[in-house]
Amino acid sequence: MYGGGYIQDDDIKQPSNGQEDPRLLAEFEARINAGEKIEPDDWMPAEYRKQLIRMIEQHAHSEIIGALPEGTWITRAPGFKRKMALMAKVQDEIGHAQLLYSAAETLGKPREEMINDLLSGKSKYSNVFNYPTPTWADSCIITWLIDAAAIVNQVINSKGSYGPYCRALERICYEESFHLKLGHDCIVELATGTPAQRKLVQAALERWWKPIIHFFGPPDKTSVHSEKLMRWKVKMASNDDMRNQYLSTYVPKIKELGLVIPDPDLKKDEATGSWTYSDPDWDEFFRVINGDGPCNEERLAVRKWAEDNGKWVRNALQKASDKYVVPLA
């Protein structure tokens, strides 16, 4: 999964102090223009480093928090096939977090500090995981449609400029494409199953449609973008571009299964390729991102339990003589 999607753009709006060495900056931008990757030991502007840490860190948090709503269905998954597949799938997500924390660490922020910022609320994660998964079908919707949204975002970002992040994303996308197949298979089974199963999956789609529309963030007309971050290939596509690409691919697939999308106003302008949809309540989106969603407290409480209860283990692994080593990525 899971990460990517829209997280928080506040910092992007702040201009840089413009104190970078102009010669180094020009060389840096020329390399990016030429399609080269920036590596951990290369010179980079302070703002580039800061924005990448923020973005990769929040992506990593989205993976470990995102493992929770689906993880609760491992113990209830119906049958060996589903149980084993879901275990492996959620395990992949934890593995993605590990890869991404390592990629962020190459920029100089230790994993522990990132986790602390997650727990304190300073650092965010993808908003969709603040919604509940009350049925098996909700878990399947995440596996299919949320992972699908993440893939759209991650494939685009894997073409970015920072080498370790791009390489991590390439590996992640490879695994995500299997998740997508799994999720689709689970949904097909329900959508072509008994009347009760069809009802279950339709209800789950109705619960998840709004978070799905929210996934890529507010419309471009209300969202301020930094031209510089686009130029530096930190941000690779606008929220609307990604959402349009997603809807064009997945709306037909959802309808093909006989499921009804709960938005009568959803339609595509074939000439421009852009979609219109009912107001998905962007006020709610901002309320949830700022901590007031149905599951924000629960998600962070579970993560805090894991951190608190694992502390003695991590302490026992440390030796005073050990030096901090930035991971290879």
Binding site: I64, A67, G71, I74, M87, I94, A97, W305, G310, V313
Partner: peptide, 17 residues
């Protein structure tokens, strides 16, 4: 499998899974 998401380190979470 109940350790998924709760392990003392990410690496151990993955191992138990």
């Amino acid at each position: 499998s109940e350790w998924t998401g709760l392990g003392p380190t990410l690496e151990e979470d993955i191992s138990f899974s």
